[in-house]
Nucleic acid binder design. Structure first.
Lengths: 142, 142
DNA sequence: CTCAAAGCTACAGTGGCTGAAGAGATGTAA
DNA sequence: TTACATCTCTTCAGCCACTGTAGCTTTGAG
């Protein structure tokens, strides 16, 4: 039987995060000691590992909810899991494309800054005047 | 004189976002009509454009605050602006590297899924067992 | 029996917005 | 002048996925 702290350590999760997952129904309510402390078994360890791994791969908690549901029902078709993963892959590729545009622009700004007064700073100048940009970087939050 | 709506349209910002920027002190308190509505001039338009452009390049609002301050003081050295931009560039490059690892893993998952029952799904299997991963993808939130 | 470490609940805060409710202002057309 | 649509106002709540804090209780080893 694992305490919440032990479970946290084994999965690289913070204690509060585990309680948060329980609160939003991603983790089940575990058994408790007489004194009210949570105690976990192997099933919970596996489930939390799954969740953390999926989070590391960038899946949203909603997507993870679906993936866990599929994982809990081995006879269901895995089409849906495949679709979720494909969607995630597309999102990652999109974000990489956007970041690539940002990288280009930032690298140019930095390269052209000759390090004088702010008035002549290339970095600030580019920010002031969007028309100086060579690449598209429309989306915020990339 | 621009209404907040006109300013929003000119800069591709939502009206609420402009008010939010004012609230956190990123935009100045503008003049008001007798009836209490905000009215903006060219200076505010330039400032908001600067902010939005910097946001598109992924700068945090805190970083933007510093950049605006430098932009407001043309005689200061631009060293700091340069440093902020370099930091941002490094962050972008780091995120790209992380996303590349995710992309590889996701692509492999999707490629290997043959589309049967969930029990045999490669996607779910990989999520269940971290040791199947070929690449590192430690950080969450990439 | 003592005591530090760990756990408990409840709630607030993070970043960067976004949406909604309900009231008031503005500008145009009849 | 009046009606009216559209915009704007303030205030507050919500989003995601946590993270931190305060003030308490439980646990387990010495």
């Amino acid at each position: 039987m694992l305490t919440i702290g032990a479970l946290a350590k084994r999965t690289g999760t913070k204690v509060q995060t585990i309680r948060y997952y329980e609160q939003i129904g991603l983790m089940p309510e575990p058994g408790r000691t007489a004194g009210g402390q949570r105690r976990y078994g192997e099933a919970e360890l596996d489930r939390l590992s799954f969740i953390r791994h999926a989070r590391q791969l960038g899946f949203s908690l909603d997507a993870i909810r679906e993936l866990l549901d599929l994982s809990d029902h081995p006879d269901k078709s895995c089409e849906e899991a495949d679709a979720i993963a494909r969607r995630q892959l597309r999102q990652v590729e999109l974000r990489m494309a956007r970041l690539e545009a940002l990288r280009t622009e930032l690298a140019r700004m930095v390269r052209e800054c000759s390090g004088g007064r702010s008035a002549d700073c290339r970095v600030l100048e580019v920010l002031r005047d969007h028309s100086e940009c060579l690449t598209d970087h429309e989306e915020i939050g990339g």
